[in-house]
Amino acid sequence: MWDHEIRAMASTHAIIAGSVFMATVLPTVLVPGFSVYGTHLLWLYSVSAAVAAVSGTVFWLLGVTAPTKKHTLGYKLSRLFRSCVYFFLSCLFFHTVVVLYGAPLIESALETFSLAVLLSSLTTLRCLCVLGPNVQAWIRVFSRHGAMSVWDTCLQITVACTLIGAWVGAFPIPLDWDRPWQVWPVSCSLGAIIGYLTGLVVAPAWIHYHRKQLTYKCK
C-alpha cells in the first residue's frame, strides 16, 4: 500500500546514516588529531550538524513536512524562527533532564550541553521536520493511535530508539573499567547514535512487516 513511501523512507534513512558515517570519517581525514574519543565534542557537533543538515534537506525535498496554510514568505520565516526557538528550548530541556538524571551540574556543563544538542538534533529536529513547530502534535504523535502517516510511525520508532540508546548508554559509566568510552558523555552519545542508527534501520523494516496491520486515520 505504501511501498513507495517505505522505499523513500529506506533511502532517506540510508542517506542520513551515510551522513553520520561521513561526519565521522571526513574530519578524521581532514582535521589533524581528530578522534571519536579524544576530540569527542568536535565529533558530536559534526554528527549533529550533518544529521541536521541532511535530514532537513531531505525532508524538505521529499515534502514530508506538514503542509503550511499560508505560503507567504513572512509566515515561512516566522515558522523557521519558531523552529529555531523550539530547537534551542529542547536543547535546554534535554540538558535539564540529563542533569536531573545525575550528570554533574557545573563541572562538565559544556559536555552535557553538547549531549543535549546531539539528542535534540536526533529527535527534536525530526519532529520539527515532520510535524512542524507544534508541541500539541508532538505529544499527540507519541500515543497508540496518534500516528497519522508512515512518517509518524517512523518518527515514533527512531525517537524511542535514540532515547533508549542514550539511557542505556549511561549504564557503563559507574563501572571501574577505566575505558576511554566510559568518560562522560561519550557512552551516552555513543548509545544515542547507535540507538538512532538502529532506529533508522528498524523503522522501515518494522513498517514493512506490519504494513497489513497499520491503518491511519485521514489527515
Binding site: I139, R140, F142, S143, R144, G146
Partner: peptide, 11 residues
C-alpha cells in the same frame, strides 16, 4: 506519563 500518553489518557 509516557505510558499514559501512549494510551491516550493524558490529554
Amino acid at each position: 506519563p509516557i505510558h499514559l500518553n501512549w494510551n491516550g489518557h493524558l490529554l
